[in-house]
Amino acid sequence: MEKLIGMNKKKHFKGRISRIYSFKRRPPFFLFSLVTCMIFLMSISFYSGIYVDFKLDILEQKFEDSLTIQIPGTYGKTKKYHTNQLTKVINLIKQNPKIKKFNVITDQEAISLLEPWVGKNSLPKDIIIPTIIDLRVNKIKDFNIIQIEKKLKKISQNIKIFHNVKYIQPNLRTIKTIKIIVLTIVLITLLSLVFIIITSAKTNISLNSNTIEILHLIGARKNYIAKEFIIQNLIMGFSTTIIGLIIGFLCIIFIGSLYFENFYIDLIKATINLRYLTFVLFLPIIIPLFFCLITYLTIVNNLKKLP
């Protein structure tokens, strides 16, 4: 070329001519903010969802792994007889390694529980108050209730053991319903996010259709054109996800802390749960990759329309 046009050899440009222009072609702010907002909303619903799930799990677990032993105050027997039965039961509990902890409800507590029905100080002093023992086991599935029930019956036929979960059966259905509602909300926001990503990637490309056409006309191959937009949308996908997740997290911490104590500790504990942590960590990878896929398909589709 220099021989052809016979010009001087003075060089004016010493810098580097970039081969990737994606950094120069910033996506329009409205697309960036739209995706960020959607990820923010999705993260709010997601964090709320995992918090609710975490709390409901704790509640469920509390009843699931707990049992109650009732030692009735036998008619005609002495207080000593009752205390003797209680000691035997406690020894039996202590011998069982699968029982994590137990709590004997004191007479005072039991009396106060009866107060709404029988009134204050109305119980005769010589009456033997039934004793309630609250048991916590490591895992209810590994715990043999029938076996311990047999041993309790040997101490007294009147001693009973209950699985506490039966007291909250109707509440369990409510818990399940709440969980389904929360999951539905998270799924709806996720689907909306998918829709927004598809729309944003397509809009970004249609706004640059002129660039695609020029590159195509001067001999750029499909992959060269796609590369430019893929890098751009990869950056947009990654940055919007990170920003959306962080703002969502901070926002939910702020709102939650107004209403609940130790909210942020519980939320962090909930997020650390492997399945949720995987979701949070993979989101900044999955969203940009999804962006890239949509970008590539849209460009290929656009190029098909060109001669």
Binding site: M1, M7, K11, H12, I17, I218, G219, A220
Partner: peptide, 24 residues
């Protein structure tokens, strides 16, 4: 520089040609 970049020319060659042509 775009047509040369698309054709996969080396950066040094691109710079030489582009500078000369732009000066011209």
């Amino acid at each position: 520089a775009l047509p040369l970049q698309i054709a996969g020319a080396r950066n040094r060659d691109i710079k030489d040609h582009v500078n000369e042509l732009i000066t011209w």
